[in-house]
Design a protein around this nucleic acid. Structure first.
Lengths: 116, 116
DNA sequence: TTACTATATCGCTATATGGTGATTGTCGCA
DNA sequence: TGCGACAATCACCATATAGCGATATAGTAA
């Protein structure tokens, strides 16, 4: 990703946006170990079926999950487990960010250089 | 990220959202090799100064960049280079996603084992 | 057929936010 | 002091979208 043209960069932004909704992350988390159908997800996540379907459509469009019809049900499963690498990276970076913020707020001595 | 509570999950979503704007990605890309002030970024990215400032505020809030006042200027630099790891991961996953989509659409022979 | 279930989609509202121009605040210099 | 440059913020508009209830669609079984 040295010199990205605008088009590619827009795609990357869309990719991140697809992961920027708590409910979609919950869905990915619920599918971590097993495929589930819409009804199961609706119950697990405690929200409306329409909403789950809409978010599943988004996740499918970006290739995060795959759909498999089975009778009248639709089972979804993780299409690319590497999405969890992204989440793990973010978690690690967030942890460090929060730690440094806590240090800024709570550290009395303020050793090197403080304030933003 | 095994069992994330809602609070942490919301934070992860916010983190991804911060990276879901093309202009913010452009800024990060422009800061890849060197610190720049707001005026330079405004010219480089060919957009309004107010807009650049707003996005820089967002990037600062989430710890992606750091601000250093210097005279009347404000120089911004990458605070955590690991953000590029995220972008690289996304680029790789996107490339594969597009490749498989192209294969689904246009591939006649489907050589070894098709479809991811 | 008819009835039932499961999922996808539609229409809608409320909210969030990207973008802009104008304004404000701050710093450095004459 | 006043002036000019730079950056941050304000007020506003336009758009995107999460969420909801209602409806449409597809599969299954009687």
């Amino acid at each position: 990703m040295k010199a990205l043209d605008d088009r590619a960069l827009g795609h990357v932004a869309e990719y991140f946006r697809a992961l920027s909704e708590p409910l979609r992350l919950k869905i990915l988390n619920a599918l971590r170990d097993q495929a589930r159908n819409v009804g199961e997800l609706t119950e697990l996540l405690n929200c409306s079926q329409a909403n789950v379907s809409k978010h599943l459509a988004t996740l499918t469009r970006y290739g995060f999950v795959e759909r498999a019809a089975q009778g009248t049900s639709a089972y979804y499963r993780i299409a690319d487990p590497r999405v969890y690498q992204l989440c793990d990276l973010v978690c690690g970076q967030m942890a460090q960010h929060f730690a440094s913020q806590a240090q800024l707020l709570g550290a009395p001595p303020a050793p090197s250089r403080a304030r933003r």
